[in-house]
Deep mutational scan, measured.
Amino acid sequence: KRLCLVCGDIASGYHYGVASCEACKAFFKRTIQGNIEYSCPATNECEITKRRRKSCQACRFMKCLKVGMLKEGVRLD
């Protein structure tokens, strides 16, 4: 089984260019469509796991980008 490159949960397929789970796919889409900017309360190096993926949105979004999710893949309509 493929794992989500962002949080390590089971991937539902390839989304925005990267093997990812439904939760991270939806999080990435919401962030881009809403043009949301997050800031990390710590040092921008929070560990993102299935259990902790909700704890820091800034680091989760940075990890989405780091593993290769493409903003261009999100439709803005």
Results as ranks from 00 to 15, higher is better:
Lys63His: 05
Arg52Ser: 08
Lys50Ala: 14
Thr31His: 02
Ser12Lys: 12
Ser55Cys: 15
Gly73Asn: 09
Gln33Pro: 03
Lys25Arg: 15
Cys56Met: 00
Ser20Cys: 15
Arg2Ser: 08
Gly13Glu: 02
Ser39Gln: 15
Gln33Tyr: 11
Glu22Gly: 14
Val74Glu: 13
Val18Arg: 05
Cys4Ala: 01
Val6Asn: 01
Lys71Cys: 12
Ala58Tyr: 05
Cys4Ile: 00
Arg52Gly: 13
Val6Thr: 04
Cys40Glu: 02
Cys46Thr: 01
Arg60Pro: 01
Gln33Asp: 10
Glu72Ala: 10
Gln33Glu: 11
Gly8Arg: 07
Ser39Thr: 15
Ala42Asn: 13
His15Leu: 07
Arg52Val: 12
Gly17Leu: 03
Phe27Cys: 09
Lys1Val: 06
Pro41Arg: 08
Ser55Lys: 14
Ser12Ala: 13
Leu65Glu: 09
Phe61Lys: 07
Thr31Gly: 04
Leu70Pro: 11
Lys54Ile: 13
Lys63Leu: 03
Gly13Lys: 06
Lys54His: 14
Lys25Glu: 15
Val67Ala: 09
Arg52Ile: 08
Met62Gly: 11
Lys54Glu: 14
Phe61Arg: 04
Gly68Cys: 01
Asn44Cys: 04
Ile32Phe: 09
Met62Arg: 11
Arg60Gly: 04
Phe27Thr: 02
Ser12Gly: 11
Gly8Trp: 05
Gly34Ser: 12
Glu47Arg: 06
Glu37Val: 04
Ala58Arg: 10
Phe27Ala: 03
Gly68Lys: 04
Cys7Asn: 03
Lys1Ile: 04
Asn44His: 06
Gly8His: 10
Gln33Ala: 10
Ser12Arg: 11
Gly8Glu: 12
Arg75Asp: 13
Arg75Tyr: 10
Leu3Ala: 11
Asn44Trp: 06
Arg53His: 13
Leu3Met: 10
Ala58Gly: 08
Leu65Met: 08
Cys21Met: 00
Met69Ser: 01
Gln33Leu: 09
Ser12Val: 13
Ser20Tyr: 09
Pro41Ile: 10
Met69Val: 02
Lys71Arg: 11
Gln57Asn: 07
His15Tyr: 10
Lys50Arg: 08
Asn35Ser: 09
Lys66Ser: 12
Gly68Arg: 00
Arg51Gln: 14
Glu45Phe: 06
Val74Trp: 10
Arg51Leu: 10
Ala26Gly: 14
Glu47Trp: 06
Cys4Phe: 00
Cys21Phe: 00
Asp77Thr: 11
Phe61Trp: 14
Leu5Met: 09
Arg51Met: 14
Tyr16Phe: 07
Lys54Gln: 15
Asn44Asp: 14
Arg53Pro: 10
Ser12Asn: 11
Ala23Glu: 14
Lys71Ser: 11
Cys40Phe: 01
Pro41Thr: 09
Cys46Ser: 03
